[in-house]
């Protein structure tokens, strides 16, 4: 069983900013939080001998620390598509590059996070599934591997309001899951040591058989034309009164703003 987990190195949440050309600065990157849930589940599903979890990221060179963290958490190796030509890529470029890389890695199962904190499109998983013609199971709250009449299959539980459904499909497949999969583990000291010797395989766009002119900012099908930073919210006025008086103060405040 080989599970490839798509992990995106993203700007530290809360510190994101753009450069003069409206591109997100990517000097310090962390592992996208949503992808850690998938990595955790991938590790739990691959405890048998010969099983393997690898990471795949398309990111600038600064993404390497995030990949190291993924290795320290327990992935066996990482694949890093890194190329200056990818700067300013649109979703279409990202999907073609990741699609080619998945083809190169070969996987029984591909895991994608629910959304990246910077792209936040929550579409890359579905797009890759369609591009690779893999069945797509989304919003997993639980993922199991099962034997379906001799064939390996994946079974996913997805919540639907207060109900849920359980669906199953033969491998290979692409699964996107959520935080409900459970708390990810922290890297252990042993894992951090082990990560130092684990391999990070780097590929350029050309290595994947893609013409660099078809990806990145120059080939982007969308463009940002302006960006503004809305004013920060100011700090709060503080009410420090006994409950009844505090409640009256809040109601007056809300009434003053036409909210009640």
């Amino acid at each position: 069983m080989h599970i490839v987990v798509l992990v995106k190195p993203v700007p530290v949440v809360g510190t994101e900013h753009l450069d003069g050309a409206y591109r997100t600065l990517r000097d310090t990157l962390e592992l996208n939080g949503n992808d850690e849930y998938m990595l955790e589940r991938a590790l739990r599903l691959t405890e048998a001998d010969g099983d393997e979890v690898s990471l795949l990221a398309m990111a600038p060179a600064t993404g390497v620390d995030a990949l190291r963290k993924g290795l320290a958490i327990g992935a066996a190796r990482a694949h890093h598509v890194v190329d200056d030509a990818l700067e300013g890529s649109d979703i279409r470029s990202t999907v073609s590059v990741l699609g080619a890389a998945i083809g190169r890695v070969g996987a029984d199962l591909v895991f994608a996070g629910a959304a990246s904190s910077d792209g936040a499109g929550a579409v890359v998983g579905a797009a890759l599934a369609a591009r690779l013609r893999l069945p797509y199971l989304a919003d997993a709250a639980d993922i199991e591997l099962v034997d379906a009449a001799g064939a390996a299959a994946v079974r996913v539980r997805r919540p639907m309001g207060s109900g849920h459904e359980v669906v199953q499909v033969d491998l290979p497949a692409l699964v996107m899951g959520t935080q409900l999969l459970g708390e990810p583990r922290y890297p252990s000291l042993r894992g951090i040591m082990a990560a130092r010797t684990r391999e990070i395989i780097t590929w350029s766009v050309a290595d994947l058989g893609i013409d660099p002119a078809t990806v990145g900012g120059g080939a982007a099908t969308t463009q940002v034309t302006s960006a503004v930073v809305p004013p920060e919210r100011g700090a709060a006025s503080v009410v420090n009164l006994p409950p009844d008086q505090a409640a009256e103060a809040v109601v007056d405040f809300l009434a003053g703003r036409g909210l009640i």
């Binding site: 279409r92 999907v95 936040a120 579409v123 797009a127 369609a130 591009r131 797509y136």
Partner: peptide, 21 residues
């Protein structure tokens, strides 16, 4: 969720331009 899956499938199949959010 269904709209996101649709948008993703379409990009995967057609490489159409996509703007999100």
């Amino acid at each position: 969720p269904e709209g996101l899956a649709l948008a993703g499938f379409l990009v995967g199949v057609t490489e159409a331009p996509l703007l999100v959010n």
